[in-house]
Nucleic acid binder design. Sequence first.
DNA 1: AGCACGCCGACT
DNA 2: GTCGGCGTGCTC
Length: 746
Amino acid sequence: MYYYEIYIENNRGIYTYKSKEKYEIGQWCIVNFINRYKMGLILAITEESKIQIDISKIKKIKEAAPVLSIPDNLMQLIKWIRNYYISDYYSVIKAVYPGALKLNYSKKAIYQKDFLENEYLIGEDNSENSLDEIKKFNDYMKKRKEVTIATLKKNFSSKIVEKAINEKVISIEKKVILNSKISKGEKKKSEIAEKEIILNDEQQKAVDTIKNSENQIFLLKGITGSGKTEIYINLIKESLKQGFGSIFLVPEISLTVQMIQRLEEEFHNEVAILHSKLTDKEKREEWTFIRNGEKKIVIGARSAIFAPVQNLKYIIVDEEHENTYKQENNPRYHVKNVAIKRAFLQNDNLEEDETVKSKKIKVILGSATPSFETYYQAQQGDIELVELTKRYKNAKLPKFEVIDLNETAENFSEKLLDKISQTLKKNEQAILILNRKAFSNLLKCKDCGNIPTCPNCSISLNYYKYDNQLKCHYCGYETQFNSTCDECGSHKMRQIGAGTEKIEEELAGLFPSARIVRVDSESIKTKQNYEKVYNDFKNHKYDIMLGTQIIAKGLDFSNVTLVGIINADIILNFPDFRASEKTFQLLTQASGRAGRGEKDGEVIIQTFNGENDVIKKTIESDYEGYYKNEMIIRKMLNYPPFGRIVILVISATEENLAKEKAQTLRKEIVKNIDTVVKLTTNNFISDAFKSPIYKINGRYRYQIFFKFERENILKIKKIIKKCAGKFQKTEKKLRITIDVDPINMM
DNA sequence: AGCACGCCGACT
DNA sequence: GTCGGCGTGCTC
């Protein structure tokens, strides 16, 4: 008899089942759980002696489930993520294995005997219709022997079905049915584009380095327009010819239209594109194709890192500095971390032979402005740095100009207005960026000073003029704006902090003949929307594209010669140690939109902080210099990449409860840690303090901030896990979230 | 203190 | 769905 540790679908616990059959780790099976058949995943095989519970309670596994198993390397990855991010099997497996692949359960009716027609008629409906129905029922059942209850109910009255059950004409059995019917659409023969990609010397050198190096992790640092994509495609293509697959990760599928079109052109039906909009059926098909090795290239956002690609060779994380690579709910993993772990896990498992080198997975992190944490690893030699310094087709870098907003009361400085007019006159295009949607950030009453705030969150409501609503960006709360102050009834509500909607209005007033398009998450709700706007702008159906940071990235328009940053300070003021790094990235990325074609580009940055080092280093295009300055501060304060951070958020609907319990939990953790690591400024636990966003969705939030030397972090995480777990068991009203290596500090 | 009752979470 | 643990509130 074998004993197995089993994860049961949609259940938080791990249970022991037994079987005479041998099951593999990662295989799915059917088990009886609370009188229901459920899918179970084999996590481990255990020895009888190690079982904690009463062995007589242990049930038998019913049978193997007829679904594809999770490959061994992904099972190891699941276990690692659960451990590293202080998560649980339930959340991690949900993230890794698409729900669409699961089994369904339906009740089946099994033929037992015929209805005795006369018997049925006594005291019942004896019309012609019902006699016919009885006959039909009998014939039906006799022929099919078994049929789902759902089908029966569709074809017969509920009365007759009920009667059939009562008189044991049919018996009911719960049957497991496979939800993963794959349509037998034949995969077409591979038709890889044979179009030759011409690489310049620098690109060719980069390709050769990545191919031939003994290293497994690479940082491809290349300024915008230096042609990283060609390098990716070249590597994927070459490895594909030898039967290897690749995973290509992008920050957000809907915003990377160009990249995806490009890869589809190159690889046609070898490509599976994974994204959240796929239907269940599509997800099943794609997963199965990938698992069976019929599709070898996967493109997708974050979760595509879990694609069961066969003979995986390259994992490419494009725009590796992007925040969207960090999942903001449990499991709070960072895809970069997971990608590297996946590569190492698999590489370590390889059989040592002469082909081992060619089978090793390589991870390529690509960016024009690498996150400082990645760049630090490259400096340390943990990651091999591959640099591209020439702009593709020798396009020049744009010219910068900084405008001090202290000198003007307007949203547009004279200089920026002048530059926009000139651009329009030359029949060229401009991109204007403001990292704030809505019409205004907040409203403030001139008479009493009241600021309308979300009732669920401690956040001022944003004002949207187009539908005259006040909206909360955190919980989605919306309310009609009636032009008066709720507190004092005054009509003088001042708009503070202009958003894209307002800028659009001003712009239309200033340049009445210009064709303007606004792009932010409010105006672009679907991928189709985005693609249309993108193509229309490219075809010069618009003169000015105005938008939030979503237009700062990756767009390639050769006729854009002016980029204007309306206000560079918005991110800079966030309570986040990465705020200035993020600002540097945004400004650099944005300026890369200018001058991608033959014409020279120009960038105008409007800011209240012209003297800030970030702005200075941006206009000097001095990544290295800014990195060095920032590292001095990080080192001094022991922030990543030096120290490690964990944030614990304790929330409750009752304000006092959240506060008190957060303090209690903190004390408990401090007590435990105190015996293991001496607390200093570098090994630090904050008080339980109000989160920067104190209230979200009706829950009051307190957080505890942990900052520790790297070598202590394992011990610390263990203690946090233990204490928080114990605490959560007794404190049901509290919600505790643990964020390891947080990106969002609010 | 002892017991009935009802709520809620666990169920291998 | 059903069992048991726990908190509450009533009674001795």
